[in-house]
């Protein structure tokens, strides 16, 4: 998983999933849980999700949107998008290193 961001602690991985989910558009908590389960297979519980949302909001990586309906949606900010790009680049480097090492092991 991604490099740990000290301020996010054990929520680093969940925060990454939330940022990926919001990168395609604003979502409320219920839709985020469903979306994350769909694209990653990770089933998030509300306590974990909102622990990550609190940290992402505090860092200014996501923000609440004025709700048009009962549920309050969140959207990713420009800073959040930059942070997501950085995290994904780190993941790519890890993935490439892993693939290379697995290839050496089987050679």
């Amino acid at each position: 998983m991604a490099r740990r961001t000290p301020e996010l602690g054990r929520f680093t991985d969940v925060a990454l999933l939330v940022l990926i989910s919001l990168a395609e558009g604003q979502k409320h908590g219920y839709r985020m849980i469903s979306d994350i389960e769909e694209f990653s297979g990770t089933s998030l519980e509300p306590g974990t999700l909102y622990g990550a949302l609190m940290r992402l909001e505090e860092r200014g990586w996501i923000e609440a949107v004025q709700p048009a309906e009962r549920r309050k949606p969140y959207r990713i900010t420009d800073g959040g998008r930059d942070a997501l790009r950085e995290q994904l680049a780190t993941l790519r480097r890890i993935e490439q290193a892993g693939v290379r090492r697995v290839a050496w092991g089987t050679a």
Binding site: G29, Y30, I33, E45, P46, G47, L49, Y50, R70, R71
Partner: peptide, 18 residues
């Protein structure tokens, strides 16, 4: 928002622990 999630989604023991 969380109360809404608790109402709308299945609640298991791990949900309470979480």
């Amino acid at each position: 928002e969380v109360a809404d999630l608790v109402t709308a989604r299945p609640v298991r023991l791990r949900t309470v622990a979480d």
